[in-house]
Amino acid sequence: MKKKIYLFRLLGLLLLFRLAQPGQAQTIKPIFEDGKGRTSIIAPLGFLGINTENSSIRFQYFYAKTAGPDPLGTQLIKRNRFYWGINVTGSAAGGISNLFSAGVFTPGTSACLFLGHRSLFFSALDKEGTPVLHGKKQVAIEDWLTFRTGGQIANYTLYDETKPFADQISKERFRGYLAQVAYNVLISGATSIGVSWDIAQANNIDDLTAIKFKQQTVISAPNGQNTRIFEREVNAFSGSYETTIVNTYSLDGVRYFTPDSEINYALHLYGRLRHANDQPVYRAGVGFYLFPKGKVAGGIFVESNDLGNKISDTPQFSKRIDMGLTVKFIMPSLGVPEP
């Protein structure tokens, strides 16, 4: 377990070292996620971030090319609208809300490859290179379609007290996958709408109880007079572990406000329809975020994990509401270019 923690920290340090050079940008915009870290707004840029919303450390490489000369040699331009990238997230698998759950480190790594096409329905520039503006206010509209596919690996120790003593502790390696299609549009640099469908193999580790106990092994010497007791601490999850195929339909809306002040703010509304075991579960939430002109962005979100009370134990709506604080750091050494 310790080796995994060190590897995880080493990966983080390497990424920091790679990006810790002056004049490089670091984003705060991919903060628009739900409590499980899910979003249909896929940011078309590279970033390295710590997101306390779902306690994940994440890294995204984004490859894109700007418009270039027409290969046929005309005065027109070739709009290079294809992009691709990779996204690696170090967090607990299965959408668990904390890397450390009840003091138990539950590592999981997910990585995905994405590729997409921008300016699908709304051109950002015409073939002569002139910006395309829309409406009376002459605003820009940007859109992009992304296909994302990836996998997830996590190891868990499970404890089941209903089984015979020798079988109560077991090791489980979770191998999940995800495929997502997402469409995003950004209107006038302030309003963004994202819709997506994804299919994933998920587990219910979030619903299990984290427990900690001490395991003793007693070895007696052949003479029968001495005994040696080995003791180790075991962190495990108690309950019935299951994996399921989940279809999720997501809708996200963000309104970004930029008043004439040092602080910008954003409102994020989202809805999710989760289909697992033929049981539709609706989830919705709202987030409010502040973006001061500095290195930290943060906000608050409120969400209901089960709007229709399909899977909850309680009929009381207020008890099906989760509330969370989220903070996104910008590493000071990364340096955001000031306007």
């Binding site: 840029l45 590279g46 090319k65 700007t66 270039g68 000369p69």
Partner: peptide, 28 residues
């Protein structure tokens, strides 16, 4: 070098369109 988190659509020098590539640190 053009640093931004925005999407650079087009860059011209002396009127020529020049294709810049985005790199790991969001610098074209």
């Amino acid at each position: 070098e053009l640093s931004t988190e925005a999407t650079l659509q087009l860059f011209r020098l002396e009127g020529f369109a020049i294709a810049l590539t985005r790199t790991l640190d969001n610098v074209y």
